[in-house]
Amino acid sequence: MFETDTGGAQIQLRALTKQFPGQAEPAVDSVDLDIPAGELVAFVGPSGCGKTTTMKMINRLVEPTSGEIRIGGEDVLALPPDELRRHIGYVIQQIGLFPHLTIGENVGLVPKLLGWDRPKAEARTEDLLALVNLEPGEYRDRYPRQLSGGQQQRVGVARALAADPPVMLMDEPFGATDPITREHLQNEFLKLQKDLRKTIIFVTHDFEEAIKLGDRIAVLRNQSHIAQYDTPANILANPADDYVASFIGADATLKRLALMTVDEVPTEGPPDPALPQVETGTSLREALDLMVANGTDRCSSPAGVLSYTALCASIGREEVAAGDR
């Protein structure tokens, strides 16, 4: 199945529609979307907008009423659903680890369903636990209830990766964790995805999370209509309409600055040890924060001096000269 390599496969949705019986309007109305191989696309929208339903049609937990789904060119609706799901990673907010199975058994379930032999499945389980930063020797034989929420969520991710699926579906996977754990899990996950390059659909109602994790964001309105589908930077710079803008909130520019690093801005002259210092890889938002905090309009990175003017120019804004105000 999906005879592409496991590094990711393109997903194509064509006129995808779901009409639940007894409802006047379709829950998902004729969605067309191309998700490039190896990218993480975040579905963002208010609750009830059909984003989860759209996602669940891809692994056919919800059967589409009409339309087409292709993964790596293959027609998903022509495949046996159970077999299909074994090749699509699935992570849900409630995690859904089986409490009667050990961590190792939970992770090894899909390989077992696929008929892998024992040594191969066990080796895979160990690798995956290590991949999500859980020491296999320590955690393999524990039960889910003996783990913290964050640890359980990591096991959930490991379990979804077990059969090395080209596609992963994630439904608010970090939604139930506290802010600190969530940030931690997001960072770990970003690092993981950098290596794995899976094709991922990530449902969330948290726009910040979408900006942080998504290669692209699909902002959805009712019935899963796509309001805008673009990279985070483009959506922040040019929201398609008021609806999208309302999602971004009042601090769109600050959010854009958070997406860029000091290395992307041209510097003037050599580093100046007298100015506040930022390191390589620091976001422009942090750099701005540092300037405001120190009451200066410049700071220094290892590459040179970074000015407020350059910072504004980097996001396409001219600094308004003092005399024109």
């Binding site: 937990l61 299909l84 859904g96 379930l109």
Partner: peptide, 13 residues
């Protein structure tokens, strides 16, 4: 828990 059943179905049981 319905979430467990969804997880099970989602992994292809």
């Amino acid at each position: 828990d319905p979430a467990l059943i969804e997880a099970a179905r989602g992994m292809g049981m």
